[in-house]
């Protein structure tokens, strides 16, 4: 299922906000077409790690970073922002849709990347919504406002919007923290289906969610990567005591 071919590789990644170090010497490989779960208590640097990968951290002017991130074997700093962010899409914690129509939300990405052909955009919108398991629910009201969708539908719309720019990697930043269990299940279904074609990284506070969907799981604690292993191994037989303590609810 998982090819041992790293699409993203971080080498001694250190991240700072002003003087505060939030990530320490992270060395992590992400394999092509896997779902990597990242678990850990609040403030352990999970989100910062995610946002370092598509360089969204740099929007914060107090942010500094050391170390190397390799994407497809290439030093990521050599790749322009707009190319890197297109290849590595992100789904935010709260469903964040633009207050425009469902159609325009999905079409926004292709449009900024210069797709002008209306039929091509139509096809991309439909294909992306289908992949995100939203098409059947919205196909009759593409021209209504996206803000009228439910939270779970909005989150799947965000996934469709990301898919529309044809990324290789999709990052999820606690994508189900604001959703009910049924909507969560729908989003997880969508992730499972997408894993045939995309590399996915899932940051979650919910250890059960990581156990359900991820192939491998990484445990972050206080800015350090404690361990990373196949999900089953990590959950049943972790090699580090701190992982065991966290998973059994001794802290966090």
């Amino acid at each position: 299922m998982v090819e041992q071919d790293a699409i993203i590789k971080t080498l001694d990644l250190n991240c700072f906000y002003d003087e505060l170090q939030v990530l320490r010497n992270i060395n992590l490989e992400i394999y092509r077409n896997e779902i990597l779960g990242i678990i850990g208590p609040a403030n352990s640097g999970k989100t910062t790690f995610l946002r370092a990968l598509n360089r969204l951290n740099s929007l914060n002017i107090n942010y500094r970073q050391q170390g190397v991130i390799r994407f497809e074997g290439q030093d990521a700093t050599q790749i322009p922002d707009s190319v890197l962010r297109r290849k590595i899409g992100i789904i935010f914690a709260m469903p964040q849709v633009l207050p425009i129509t469902i159609y325009e939300n999905v079409a926004y990405g292709p449009r900024v990347h210069g797709v002008k052909d209306g039929q091509r955009i139509d096809a991309l919108v439909m294909e992306s919504l289908q992949k995100a398991y939203l098409w059947d629910e919205v196909k009759d009201r593409l021209q209504t406002s996206a803000t009228k969708l439910s939270g779970g539908q909005q989150q799947r719309l965000c996934i469709a919007r990301t898919l529309a720019v044809e990324p290789d990697v999709i990052l999820y930043d606690e994508p189900c923290s604001g959703l009910d269990p049924i909507s969560t299940a729908r989003v997880e279904d969508a992730m499972q289906q997408l894993s045939q074609q995309y590399t996915q990284i899932l940051v979650t506070n919910n250890t059960k969610q990581a156990a359900r969907v991820s192939h491998r799981t990484a445990f972050f604690l206080m800015g350090e990567l404690v361990e990373v292993d196949n999900t089953q191994v990590l959950y049943t037989n972790p090699s580090d005591k701190r992982t065991d303590d966290y998973l059994t609810g001794k802290f966090g």
Binding site: L59, S82, R85, Y108, V112, H113
Partner: peptide, 21 residues
């Protein structure tokens, strides 16, 4: 701020983000 993040995260340039989002 989230509108800007959405747009930038989809690979839009800064000016595209300002112009459209």
């Amino acid at each position: 701020m989230s509108y800007r993040e959405i747009s930038l995260s989809l690979g839009a340039t800064r000016w595209q983000t300002i112009r459209y989002c």
